[in-house]
């Protein structure tokens, strides 16, 4: 890759825009699941759908915190950091790159663990959880270019 000429202003980093967009979608999914868990979206009953089974299993709470709430915080941090990282003065800031990379790796790892739980322990699939796992995977892909920024600065 060739460096952009000094007089040509580079566009905003596409990977951070991707992270912001994905994190926003993830935030809405996690928010929806958190509202469901709080009983704000109707009576909690079991149907043949896997989401109820997953959401009401003991693994829906991690270290005393409901998993959807962790999702809200995690995606919220990723969204805020990515938006901050789009601002010109933070484009080369290593801290932004570090947070995005660490957040993406942690999110991917946690999603992989939750997906394994659904497959091997709970024996039920929640489509919203799977959507979130897909987003976490894409987020990791979008965060890989941050490795370069960490090394460069």
């Amino acid at each position: 890759m060739t460096a952009a000429p000094a007089d040509h202003a580079p566009g905003p980093p596409a990977n951070r825009m991707g992270i912001a967009l994905l994190a926003l979608i993830g935030l809405m999914i996690a928010g929806y699941m958190a509202a469901y868990m709080l009983g704000l979206l109707g009576a909690i009953i079991c149907g043949t759908g896997g989401c109820e089974t997953v959401q009401q299993s003991p693994w829906a709470v991690f270290l005393g915190i409901p998993v959807p709430f962790l999702g809200v915080v995690g995606y919220g941090v990723m969204l805020g950091t990515a938006l901050l990282g789009l601002q010109p003065r933070f484009l080369a800031d290593r801290r932004i790159a570090a947070v995005l990379l660490a957040g993406a790796v942690a999110g991917f790892g946690f999603s992989a663990y939750l997906t394994w739980l659904e497959a091997a322990v709970i024996h039920a699939w929640c489509r919203w959880c799977l959507a979130s796992a897909g987003i976490a995977t894409l987020l990791l892909g979008c965060a890989i270019p941050e490795v370069k920024k960490l090394r460069r600065s």
Binding site: A9, P10, G11, P12, L86, Q87, P88, L91
Partner: peptide
């Protein structure tokens, strides 16, 4: 909002 270097993010 983004400045010149960051491009237009609107």
């Amino acid at each position: 909002m983004a400045g010149k270097r960051g491009g237009n993010l609107n």
